[in-house]
Write a protein that binds this DNA or RNA. Structure first.
Length: 428
RNA sequence: GGAGGGAUGGCAGAGCGGACGAUUGCGACGGUCUUGAAAACCGUUGAGGGGCGACCCUCCGGGGGUUCGAAUCCCCCUCCCUCCGCCA
């Protein structure tokens, strides 16, 4: 949520920043400004009326003590009338406040100043490409992972579909070990500074609102209507709400958390796109890394998260590129995002495996996460950042394609050896 | 699921219709003392909103109600604790 006061004091600046996302980011903005102006007028009147009632009540108490019942009764009548007035103003103010919040919840974050201009993914900026040379891939690596998986018996899509429908998947044998090893390696390598959390995978509506996944993107998430609960689309959701309604100490920041969780996505509207194999599935495992920072710390921590995510991919021996998302392609809550895409030689595609984002105070304002400044003891809203340390299916796919040997077996990267019960290859 | 008890400022914990936005203790911050530190002593210290400002308003788990006036009384909800039932 962006700050109403900013809309009030720098409307043109907010308008211009949002316009960088495209014109569909602007609806509601002008209305918020108008409603806010009305609200302040009504609230001022309401407060004034309340002050009068308080004053009269005090006088009533005083008169009662003196025993002047007649005068007291007169003031009571007057106060009762003011009470009616106060009630009407109160209802009006509450109504305005709710309207403003509803609109504000749907207005996206302002892109960072240094976020590149652009309309859509075609305008994204590729920052670097690491380990990629199309000449070096042999024909044995040009086999898509769904074929490799079937051949080795480590991926069983047909039966997953039997159990749960299309776009669900199932790993078997060493394939299942690989999925788990990837997660465990990601957690272990980040355990030096990230606190490991195992949060609930099912959360309340309020928790989904805090990150910006609701109300705008309800169609993307699985809802358990009967209990008013939602399946998390990412560990970002519970981890961001850890600090909800809390005031942290500046000295404790940055706070870094990581979590391994399943992630559930309806992928509404993307049916038929990337449906083959593991490229787009309804449920997958992921290790997320996340931080709460002061505004000053956020840039450095953003770089740190990116470096962490990148080095994991590099250590798995995968080729990847880093993309700086343009303003038009930015996610709703993000101010700046770097995507990491791995190259999958078998299907000859770049696969997005991590979005490392800085959300400025957008999510934290929704979640009301604050910190107390050491210098003047005042409270301020924290910044949140997060990214995938590892997302299983796509990395799994790129890995088996990249490390497929001429004999059809898969070489297990060294960083995963500790998790493979002594095996160094996956073969029939 | 049933019965009872609870929810108050960073934490602990009073208050139970009228100067209560809230006694007190701890913690935190500032100061005195000290070569320095500890201890002791003194002072400050909840959050949010509005107004150029003196100030004003809101918040005692959440929502309704009674009253001139509610942290205090009534109703509903949520969560926590104890006991019973059920259960991986």
């Amino acid at each position: 949520m962006i700050d109403v006061r900013r809309i009030r004091s720098d409307y043109d600046g907010v308008y211009a920043a949002l316009a960088r996302r495209g014109m569909d980011a602007l609806p509601g903005l002008a209305e918020v400004r108008e409603l806010d102006e009305q609200l302040r007028k009504v609230a001022a009147k309401r407060d004034q009326t309340r002050a009068q009632i308080k004053e009269l009540s005090n006088q009533v108490a005083h008169l009662h003590r003196k025993g002047d019942r007649e005068e007291a009764a007169a003031l009571q009548a007057e106060s009762r009338e003011l009470g009616e007035h106060e009630k009407r103003l109160s209802v009006e103010a509450d109504d305005l406040r709710n309207q403003i919040r509803e609109l504000l919840l749907r207005i996206p974050n302002l892109p960072a100043d240094d976020c590149p201009d652009g309309e859509d993914e075609n305008d994204n900026v590729e920052l670097r490409r690491v380990g990629y040379d199309p000449e070096t891939y042999g024909s044995h690596q040009r086999v898509p992972h769904w074929e490799i998986g079937a051949e080795l018996g480590i991926l069983d899509i047909e039966r997953a579909v039997k159990l749960s429908g299309s776009m669900f998947t199932m790993f078997r044998q060493q394939g299942a070990v690989l999925a788990r090893a990837l997660c465990q390696a990601a957690l272990d390598r980040n355990s030096d500074v990230f606190e490991e959390i195992r949060p609930p995978s099912v959360v309340l509506t309020e928790t989904m609102i805090s990150t910006g996944h609701l109300p705008k993107f309800a169609d993307e998430a699985y809802q358990i209507e009967r209990d008013d609960l939602w399946l998390i689309p990412t560990a970002e959701v519970p981890l961001t709400s850890l600090g909800r309604d809390e005031i942290l100490d500046e000295g404790d920041l940055p706070l870094r958390y990581m979590a391994y969780t399943p992630c559930f996505r309806r992928e509404a509207g993307s049916a038929g796109r990337d449906t083959r194999g593991l490229l787009r599935v309804h449920e997958f495992d992921k290790v997320e890394i996340l931080a709460y920072t002061t505004p000053d710390q956020s840039a450095a921590v953003h770089a740190e998260l990116l470096a962490r995510a990148e080095s994991m991919i590099a250590d798995l021996g995968l080729a990847y590129r880093v993309i700086d998302l343009c303003a038009g392609d930015l996610g709703n809550s993000a101010a700046r995002t770097f995507d990491i895409e791995v190259y999958a030689p078998g299907c000859d595609k770049w696969l997005e495996v991590s979005s490392v984002s800085w959300f400025s105070d957008y999510q934290a304002r929704r979640a009301n996460i604050r910190y107390r400044r050491a210098e003047d003891r005042r409270t301020e809203i924290v910044h949140t950042l997060n990214g995938s340390a590892l997302a299983v299916p796509r990395v799994w796919a790129a890995l088996v394609e990249t490390h497929r040997q001429p004999d059809g077996s898969i070489r297990i990267p060294e960083v995963l050896h500790p998790y493979f019960r002594g095996a160094t290859t996956i073969s029939k």
